[in-house]
C-alpha cells in the first residue's frame, strides 16, 4: 500500500500506522503508537460521550478506549473481521497518558512524506495524504491529550 519503511530518522518522523475506521483509512503517527492488540474488552462508562467507548484493562492498568470511527466521523464498520485496539501515548511529554483507539483493522506501517499531507481543519485531524491511490487521514494524536 504505502512506501516501505526506511530506517532514516527523518523518515521515522513521517512513519504512520495505517488503520481502518469505517470507510476511512487513517494514519496514526508511529511515534505515538505503543502497541497494537486484538480488540480489548471495554467496559462502558454511563453518561460518557459517544467517542469514549469505556474503560479496558491493558497491562494491569485501566485504559480509556476511544472509538476511532466516531473520532473521524466515519460510519461504523459492519462486523470487522479482526478489530484491534491501538494503544497510543498522548499528551505533553511531562504527562503522557495511555489511550486506546478502537479500530476496525490494523493495516501496515508506512511512511507518509510530510509534504504530501494536505493540512486539514486542525485539531485531531492533521490532514489528508494520498497513498497508493487512496486518501489517508492523518491524525494528530497529541490533540487528544490536551
Amino acid at each position: 500500500m504505502g512506501e516501505p519503511l526506511k530506517e532514516t530518522r527523518t523518515r521515522r518522523e513521517g512513519t504512520h500506522l495505517l488503520v481502518r475506521a469505517g470507510e476511512y483509512t487513517c494514519g496514526l503517527p508511529l511515534a505515538a503508537v505503543r502497541r497494537v492488540v486484538r480488540a480489548l474488552t471495554v467496559h462502558p462508562l454511563p453518561g460518557a460521550a459517544g467517542e469514549l467507548e469505556g474503560l479496558a484493562e491493558f497491562g494491569g492498568e485501566p485504559l480509556p478506549v476511544l472509538n476511532l470511527a466516531r473520532l473521524v466521523n466515519a460510519s461504523p464498520g459492519a462486523n470487522p473481521s479482526y478489530p484491534v485496539t491501538v494503544v497510543v501515548r498522548v499528551g505533553p511529554a511531562d504527562g503522557r497518558e495511555m489511550l486506546g483507539l478502537a479500530a476496525d483493522a490494523a493495516l501496515e506501517v508506512v511512511h507518509v512524506p510530510p509534504d504530501s499531507i494536505v493540512a486539514g481543519e486542525g485539531g485531531f485531524l492533521q490532514g489528508e495524504a494520498p497513498l497508493g491511490g487512496e486518501v489517508v487521514r492523518i491524525l494528530n494524536l497529541e490533540a487528544l491529550g490536551s
Binding site: A31, V33, A106, V109
Partner: peptide, 28 residues
Amino acid sequence: ETHILSLNAAIEAAAAGDHGRRFSVVAE
C-alpha cells in the same frame, strides 16, 4: 496475530531507531 505481531515489531523497530532498522525489515 502474526500481522499484529509484525506491526508491533515494526513499532518497536521504529522506537529503536537505527538499531531497529534490520528488525523493521524483518517485521515487514
